[in-house]
Structures are given as structure tokens and as C-alpha cells.
């Protein structure tokens, strides 16, 4: 089976976010770019499955929509263990645009399992996975917290209200993965970093698609008010502050 992990190139999660041009664009100056954490966990799970079932999984690819500056992020994925990378050479304009580009990739080179992280840590769209499944006509499972092989069959688990749902699913399928899919991402080894030098990184041109949304303006969250500590015994003071200061009761 062939697995495709779809990735976003996002600012390091500790980045101090700034905007430029009347808050109309993100200031990328000095930003360190990383694999979107959920996508990195999806890739890690794919690698774990391949390590445990080498006869079953022949290849793990990663795909990313972005310009040439995103290639270090793809090569990091190759260093961690992906077999090959695919970059769609265009700016990721919005969720639909990205999903449409990835759908074109899937149409041109079939995969059995497509994994997407539940959201990207930059725009938090949570939309690409579902849209991609629809555009590519794939079975889809959302909020997947476990992906395993049991007796040669793939078994998915999903978090549902008050419990867990176990699914069997026909390939090809797309799974949107979330917390629980695996514990922590892999650190690339020296051998992996060296091997990444010669792994294929295919660049494909974008298909003609239009973004469906337009970013109008960004704004940073307001400054958090200072925290007031109240003695647990002093319920009167708590009620007083909630009533007179916070005005919520």
C-alpha cells in the first residue's frame, strides 16, 4: 500500500506573530518554518505502521502546496523517513485552493491511504482534509485518533461523544488525524538527514483553480487581563468581583 501524508508549512509554534501592510498580510520576516505539528504526527504514525508492517506498506510520500522556500520543510519530512516528496508549486491561497491542488496530485498518482492533520497551526482552517476527500472522491474518516493494522486489515478509531468508535474502512481512504494518533514526532537521525539528500522531491505545477475566500484583515488577540488570585475560603470576595468588576453575574 502507498501512503500520502499531506503537509502544511507553518511558522514555528513559538513564533511571535506580526502583521504588515495595514494588517493585511502576515510578516514572515525571521520566521522559522516547520512541518505543521498534526501533519508531523500523521507522518510519524505512517512511518510507525511501515516499520511494523514492512510487507504491507511499500511507500510513504509527503505532499505540500507551497513555493520553493518550503522545500526545507519537505526535506525534513524526508530526513524523518518519508520516501519521497511532492511540492505543488504555488502559494496556498486558501483551504479550497490547497485541497484542489492536492486532489490533482492524488488523481495523477494513486495512493491507498491519505493522511491529513486535523488543522494547521497557522490558519486553523480544519477544512482541507474533508474538502480533499470530496474533491478526490475518497472514503473519509474524520477525527481519527488511532490507525492500526489488525490481522492484515486497517482499523481506525474515532473520538465520539462519550466514547470511541472503531471503524473498518475500504481503501483508498482519507483519514483526518488528531490527538492520540501517536505520542510524539520523530527526531531525524544523521543517517536520515544524509539519506534525504538523494530522496526524490518532485515539483508539480499548480492546476488552474481560484481561491474561494479573500483575507480582508488580521488582528491579534487582545491583551489578557491580569489574573487575580482569591483565597478559596473567600467566596464573598469572588462573588463581589464577578458581580461588580467582571459583571458576569
Amino acid at each position: 500500500m502507498k501512503i500520502l501524508v499531506c503537509m502544511s508549512n507553518v511558522p514555528d509554534t513559538t513564533t511571535k506573530i506580526r502583521f504588515t501592510g495595514d494588517n493585511k498580510s502576515f510578516d514572515a520576516g525571521g520566521v522559522q518554518w516547520i512541518i505543521n505539528p498534526w501533519d508531523e504526527l500523521a507522518l510519524t504514525r505512517a512511518l510507525e505502521l511501515k516499520d511494523a508492517n514492512p510487507a504491507l506498506f511499500e511507500n510513504i510520500s509527503v505532499a505540500l502546496v507551497g513555493n520553493a522556500s518550503t522545500e526545507p520543510t519537505i526535506r525534513k519530512a524526508l530526513a524523518i523517513g518519508a520516501d519521497n516528496g511532492i511540492r505543488v508549486n504555488t502559494e496556498p491561497a486558501d483551504s479550497y485552493y490547497v485541497a484542489a491542488q492536492l486532489a490533482a496530485v492524488i488523481r495523477s498518482q494513486p495512493f491507498d491511504i491519505i493522511l491529513c492533520g486535523i488543522d494547521s497551526s497557522d490558519y486553523n482552517g480544519s477544512a482541507v482534509g474533508g474538502m480533499l476527500a470530496e474533491l478526490a472522491g475518497l472514503n473519509v474518516a474524520s477525527s481519527v485518533s488511532s490507525l492500526d493494522v489488525e490481522n492484515g486489515s486497517l482499523v481506525l478509531k474515532r473520538e465520539i461523544d462519550g466514547g470511541t468508535e472503531t471503524l473498518g474502512i475500504q481503501t483508498p481512504f482519507l483519514a483526518v488525524v488528531q490527538k492520540g494518533i501517536t505520542k510524539e514526532p520523530r527526531i531525524p537521525s544523521m543517517r536520515g538527514i544524509m539519506a534525504a539528500r538523494t530522496k526524490p522531491l518532485q515539483v508539480v505545477e499548480a492546476t488552474r483553480e481560484e481561491a474561494l475566500t479573500e483575507f480582508v484583515t488580521y488582528e491579534l488577540p487582545g491583551v489578557k487581563a491580569a489574573c487575580k488570585m482569591i483565597d478559596p475560603e473567600n467566596v464573598k470576595e469572588l462573588v463581589n468581583l464577578l458581580h461588580n468588576e467582571a459583571k458576569v453575574i
Binding site: 526545507p72 526535506r75 527526531i187 531525524p188 538527514i193 539528500r197
Partner: peptide
């Protein structure tokens, strides 16, 4: 280089 940064990051993560 890109590799040197990757190694620095790997050591930091470790």
C-alpha cells in the same frame, strides 16, 4: 546550511 539547521534543531529537540 539547511542540513546544519536541521541537525541543530534535532539536537535541541533531543
Amino acid at each position: 546550511t539547511e542540513e546544519q539547521i536541521m541537525i541543530q534543531q534535532a539536537a535541541r529537540d533531543f
